[in-house]
């Protein structure tokens, strides 16, 4: 599997650490904190998820992946507008 890192180019997924679904946004208050920490939708199909280029540029990427076909269609840097 390859991740298209915006800085480093198409890289082997072994250089990365995955964190999971990027859809949940961290709430500022107690309201919704339980859902943020524990609940995930697990969609079959399009998913945006967080990947960390641990062995490269150490940037968090928001990667678009299809959980059915495994196709990775793109990635944007979290710090450049990819952040929720």
């Amino acid at each position: 599997m390859r991740i298209p890192c915006p800085f480093c180019g198409s890289r082997d997924s072994r250089e990365f650490v995955t964190r999971g679904d990027a859809a949940p946004t961290r709430p500022d208050s107690e309201e919704g904190m339980f859902a943020y920490v524990y609940l995930r939708d697990n969609p079959a199909g399009a998913l945006e998820e967080w990947w960390y280029h641990a062995q490269g540029c150490r940037q968090w990427l928001r990667v678009s992946r299809n959980t059915r076909t495994h196709q990775v269609s793109g990635a944007i840097l979290a710090c450049k507008g990819g952040a929720a």
């Binding site: 650490v17 960390y52 641990a54 940037q59 968090w60 979290a78």
Partner: peptide
């Protein structure tokens, strides 16, 4: 060490950029 570095990077890049 690696986990905390990742945690800090997530906080400053994703949570509070």
């Amino acid at each position: 060490a690696a986990r905390v570095m990742q945690h800090i990077d997530f906080a400053r890049q994703v949570l509070w950029p």
